[in-house]
Amino acid sequence: MIRAFAAATFDGTTVVHDPAVGTNHLPPRPITAGCLGLDDHEVAAWPLADPAALALDYPLSMCWSPIVRCNLACPHCLDDKHVRESTAAERSAAAGHIAASGVLGVDISGGEPLLLRDLPDLALAIRRQGTTVVSCTTNAWHLARRAPELAGTLDAIRVSLDGATAATHDTWRGQDSHRHAVAGIRAAVAEGLFVQLQMVLMHANKHEAQQLLELATHLGAGGVTFLQMLPIGEGEALAAEQMLTDEQAREVVDRLTVPDGVRVRLRTRTSAGGFTVLRADGFAWRNTRDATDISVFIPVTGPGDLRLPIPGSAS
């Protein structure tokens, strides 16, 4: 499948960012800078890039949470629900800062981003310069309704599923959440959106990891990302009971039988270290290197403010 990626060259090293999976790759052949269509099978076979090894002064990719509101109340949520939510004008300005910052990819999250009427406009504003690809992470309650207007504005959509079955997923996300998510995934795929499923991997749902891969195939999703729980926000209270070590998570993923055409990634806490997040109130932070806390907390008033120093570095 040909889909959207973003590429840039840093001190002679070309990096390609995958907006669906969230990975960065080192192409073995010359690649044109900017947003471009590439075969996802080919990109998946390329070596992974280590952002820390590139000595960048800004992140390759980031998360933007322009909304605090959510229609669900998940007990493992990372978001700080006490911050002020941005106005439409502030969201528009932030989108411009992101577009001009040099990042290759941004994932619009929340809260629940599909509650934002201006979501398509924000995505288009970021993509307008032709250098950044845009994904969106959603619980998918409203995806079936909004999929037609999101097609053509997003490069990928990531749907949170914390269980392959309704019994498990709805335990974490609330009654009927699984049904709405499945309907949303079907609608998004029908509209030509590339869908990546995401599961916060915990002791309570790790037994359904294989079933989730099979569900992805059945629904036409392109892959599954297993996210290690981060002990940040409300999820901190569940860490002792539910959090796997990176080694335990790797054992779960290594035992899976991956169907043809399905992209599987494990985002360990180690790989989440140093990741940049822009909050709804206009402040940005980077995760600490072990992704157990936040650091480098500053207000973003222009593109340069997103060039946060990496925790533990001399910069």
Rank of each mutant, 00 (worst) to 15 (best):
V68A: 09
R84M: 04
P19Q: 07
G37W: 07
C74S: 12
N24T: 00
W46H: 01
G34R: 01
A45L: 04
N24I: 00
D79I: 06
C63D: 14
C35D: 05
V21G: 04
A20G: 15
P75D: 10
H97L: 05
R29L: 07
P66T: 11
L56P: 09
L78N: 05
D80Y: 09
C74I: 13
T32V: 14
L54Q: 05
S86G: 15
P27Y: 00
L26F: 03
P27A: 00
L72A: 12
A89T: 13
R84P: 02
P30F: 00
V21N: 03
K81Y: 11
H97S: 04
V16P: 09
S86C: 06
A44G: 04
P47L: 00
C35Q: 11
G34E: 02
P47Y: 01
G96C: 04
L26V: 02
A55V: 10
A49H: 00
A93R: 12
R69K: 12
T87Q: 11
N71S: 14
S61M: 08
N71T: 12
V68K: 05
D80G: 10
D40Q: 08
G37I: 05
L78M: 09
Y58L: 15
V21W: 03
G22N: 06
P28D: 03
S65V: 06
A45S: 15
P59V: 12
T32Q: 12
